[in-house]
């Protein structure tokens, strides 16, 4: 007790803060940092999950560099990112922008947009698989057929499969992004718009000169958040291509699925760890790059 009384207020605050932080810090060290370090270590070793770990040096990384499947998968991952993030950003902004003006059944419509975000990816993927079936089962092909347009092979084509898998992934994330965008829009004081109305500027000017610049923090958050999501895409792909995960011919396979395959089908833990380290580095670089590009000048 004497000891506590001798501390300054500031020292007591620090003591309290560390006392409260101790549990999450321990948790993070055990659950996050230790496995991360271990994975980096493992990427320089060979291990089949049962035997001993043996040193491999840079062998796993060299193998990765010469692996055609890895480069295919690497490209796929970036296609998911470069298509998914801008498309979901634009769509969710448009929805939020217009939903913000709708008074009629506002809460209900917002709930409808948010529903997919709460739905399990497995259930959603199976429903979309069903949508994508040929006539007479799949709804999309049925619609095309009723207009006399030729059938589209969604999931069995190497060119169409990736966008077809991406669509439900974008759709699933929209609800969340719409909510965040609406919160951002609501935070802009109404008087900015009233002042602009008195100045008589066009709706386009208001959008590009006022709304979007003021939404910048929201846009940064959603961009980084959804980029990380698309770089780590797995469950949608896995569930929509269960017969041949990542297929056809690896055309939809993202990096996380390749890691999963290598680790739990090939039992090549060291190689999988090397891929994980690459994914980690890519995520880090992309996030830092975005924060740098969108920083407040």
């Amino acid at each position: 007790m004497r000891l506590r009384q001798n501390l300054t207020i500031r020292q007591k605050h620090i003591l309290w803060a560390w006392g409260l932080l101790a549990l999450p810090v321990i948790f993070y060290v055990v659950i996050r940092f230790y496995p991360t370090g271990n994975a980096i270590l493992l990427s320089f070793q060979n291990w089949n999950l049962l035997g001993d770990r043996t040193w491999a040096g840079a062998e796993n990384y060299i193998k990765l560099w010469h692996d055609d499947v890895f480069w295919k998968v690497f490209r796929n991952t970036f296609v998911y990112l470069l298509l998914g993030t801008p498309i979901s950003l634009v769509i969710s902004f448009l929805i939020a922008f217009h939903l913000d003006r709708v008074r009629f059944m506002h809460g209900f419509i917002r709930m409808l947009y948010f529903l997919p975000f709460m739905t399990s990816a497995v259930a959603m993927a199976w429903v979309w698989r069903w949508f994508y079936q040929p006539v007479p089962v799949g709804i999309f092909n049925n619609i095309l057929a009723s207009f006399g347009i030729p059938q589209i092979n969604f999931l069995n084509s190497t060119t169409n499969a990736l966008p077809a898998v991406l669509a439900p992934a974008v759709w699933a994330g929209l609800g969340f992004q719409v909510i965040i965008f609406m919160a951002g829009l609501r935070a802009i004081p109404q008087s900015y718009y009233e002042a602009a109305r008195i100045d008589g500027v066009s709706g386009f000017t208001i959008l590009t000169q006022i709304t979007i610049p003021l939404l910048k923090p929201t846009i940064i958050f959603i961009t980084v958040f959804s980029s990380i999501g698309f770089l780590r895409i797995f469950d949608h792909v896995f569930n929509m291509t269960t017969n041949n995960p990542g297929g056809p011919l690896n055309s939809t396979k993202p990096l996380v699925l390749m890691i999963y395959d290598t680790a739990f089908n090939g039992f090549n833990m060291g190689y999988a760890a090397a891929q994980t380290v690459v994914l980690f580095t890519v995520l880090l670089c992309v996030s830092l790059l975005q924060l740098y590009l969108l920083r407040d000048r």
Partner: peptide, 8 residues
Amino acid sequence: FQNYAIYP
């Protein structure tokens, strides 16, 4: 305006 409405 009361809150000036000047663009930050």
